[in-house]
Design a protein around this nucleic acid. Structure first.
Length: 465
RNA sequence: GGCCUGAUGGCGGAGUGGUGACGCAGCGGACUGCAAAUCCGUGUACCCGAGUUCGAUUCUCGGUCAGGCCUCCA
């Protein structure tokens, strides 16, 4: 069953065929590291991590190259550094480390490559030089601008007609631009900003050219998949594509000269209230992981289709915890079963390969959990293997089931709980129901729920963090 | 104003031209001393109007509503 992906440029689902199955390339626009990551930042990370995992499972781990850049040249970083009175790289190093730690909590694998703008500067400058040389960029008043008219069909990716762009750009069009849509490749630095020498004068690069240069240097053009949030479609990805098309000169398949598939995830919204830093209601990943396991955050981010908008609510997170309870519960009851060596379930895989249909894939996971619960004899090992292989392909169920239900309990409390559970079992064996029920009340007061079974009692925390 | 999405049962959320995914919540039953967990069962859901069709939630057109982008936000 082949993988198919919705390609924004084609506006349709297309079978995914890499240019070279031995070297599959994907690039996703990463963070600007000037603050902690919020849950909206995490959505593309988790979505493309899932795609990364699926590609690795399909083509082999060594065959997939995934680059996610880090933007470390930015006004917001400069401002932050000025506010704190520290060097710029103090800010970028701090928040990059925090970012990587947060994404690891969400079960996201580290990308194969994390190119950084500041470490790609030679390539950026060289790239601008090539665009100037072939006539698709021009210098004006200390800036270098990209000529959006140079290669035609500007706007084809995002679907913005050129006339609208002109009409929409009615304000503040710099007089030195040939066309209102033209954008900056290189600009002079203001006092206090980082500055690099270049043939165009001292200055710093524009945002769009950074990504193009990082892609070319880290992966080479064209890449198979270019990903990112739908909010980046215009102008960022439109501009990247234009740069790539002009770079490629005037070859035939210019549409695919830069990226062969464009994949965009939907936006994450925050219920009624718009999340805004000024309102202080930003849901930061580092704070959320204190209230729920990172795995539940990951589940919540994948519970809807990646292209649909997602409303972030507390209820979504609570339901995600319960969904994982179901899966981990099945594993816990099968703790004594050795999982058979099997691949993922075919129906599960088919769901993911259908443009990452995660809701359908999750439905299959629940079916596999029920299969495990109801299987008998050797069928249990098979069922457990299927469930684990499937869920783990999505980045779930790597944890210990006991820890899932008892996580956050310190040793002293655990000992006390175990003691109470034992005493209750003894009371039950003696048919002293009153004593047994009283102990159960004591456990409930400790936020513990006890569950009896034919093989003995187990317990779990009712409210968990 | 331009471009683009989407409207599915109490909630979340897939999917399909004709036997109502899946999870949570609810209800009934089994199991259990009682619970919990688990298992089995249980819901006349597809925004409105018109059209196409033997038949539309699914296709077409119109409408209403909601949301996004057009401003270096993932």
């Amino acid at each position: 069953m082949p993988l198919s992906l919705y390609d924004t440029q084609a506006r349709a689902k297309r079978p995914f065929v890499p240019a070279d199955p031995a070297r599959v390339t994907m690039y996703v626009c990463g963070p600007t590291v000037y603050n902690y990551a919020h849950i909206g930042n995490a959505r593309p990370v988790v979505v493309f991590d899932l795609l990364f995992r699926l590609l690795r499972a399909t083509y082999g781990e060594a065959a997939v190259l995934y680059a996610a850049n880090v933007t470390d040249v930015d006004d917001k970083i400069n401002r932050r550094a000025a506010e704190e009175g520290v060097a710029i790289d103090v800010i970028t190093e701090r928040y990059l480390a925090a970012y990587n730690a947060d994404m690891a909590e969400l079960g996201a694998l580290r990308p194969s490559l994390q190119p950084r703008a500041t470490r790609t500067m030679d390539a950026i400058i060289a790239l601008i030089g090539r665009l100037v040389a072939n006539g698709s960029a021009y210098a004006a008043e200390g800036h270098v601008l990209f000529d959006t008219q140079a290669c035609g069909d500007y706007g084809a990716l995002s679907g913005h007609p050129m006339e609208d762009m002109i009409a929409g750009a009615r304000v503040d069009v710099a007089p030195y631009k040939r066309h209102p849509a033209d954008f900056v490749l290189w600009k002079p630095s203001k006092p206090g900003e980082p500055v690099w020498d270049s043939p165009f004068g001292p200055g710093r690069p524009g945002w769009h050219i950074e990504c193009t240069a990082m892609i070319e240097q880290s992966l080479g053009l064209p890449i198979d998949i270019h990903g990112g949030g739908i909010d980046l479609l215009f102008p960022h990805h439109e501009n990247e594509r234009a740069q790539g098309a002009c770079l490629h000169d005037h070859a035939q398949d210019r549409d695919r000269a830069y990226a062969r598939y464009w994949v965009h995830n939907g936006f994450l919204n925050f219920g009624e209230e718009k999340m805004s830093k000024s309102q202080g209601n930003v849901a930061l990943v580092k704070d959320l992981v204190k209230t729920a396991p990172g795995e539940a955050l990951r589940w919540a981010l994948l519970v809807g289709h990646y292209r649909a908008p997602l409303e972030w609510t507390g209820d979504l997170l609570a339901q995600s915890v319960k969904a994982l309870d179901r899966l981990y519960g099945a594993l816990r009851r099968a703790a004594g079963v050795d999982a058979a060596e099997t691949g993922p379930d075919p129906a599960f895989l088919a769901a993911l390969e259908d443009d990452l249909n995660t809701p359908a894939a999750m439905a299959e996971l629940f079916g596999l959990a029920t299969a495990l619960e109801t299987a008998t004899g050797p069928g249990r090992a098979e069922a457990k293997g299927r469930l684990l292989a499937s869920a783990r392909l999505m980045g779930f169920l790597f944890g210990d089931p006991e820890a899932w239900f008892q996580g956050g309990v310190d040793e002293a409390l655990k000992t006390r709980i175990d003691d109470l559970v034992t005493r209750r079992s003894e009371a039950r064996a003696a048919k002293d129901w009153a004593a047994a029920d009283q102990i159960r009340d004591e456990l409930a007061a400790l936020n513990v729920e006890v569950m009896d079974s034919a093989t003995g009692a187990t317990w779990r925390l009712k409210e968990r963090t």
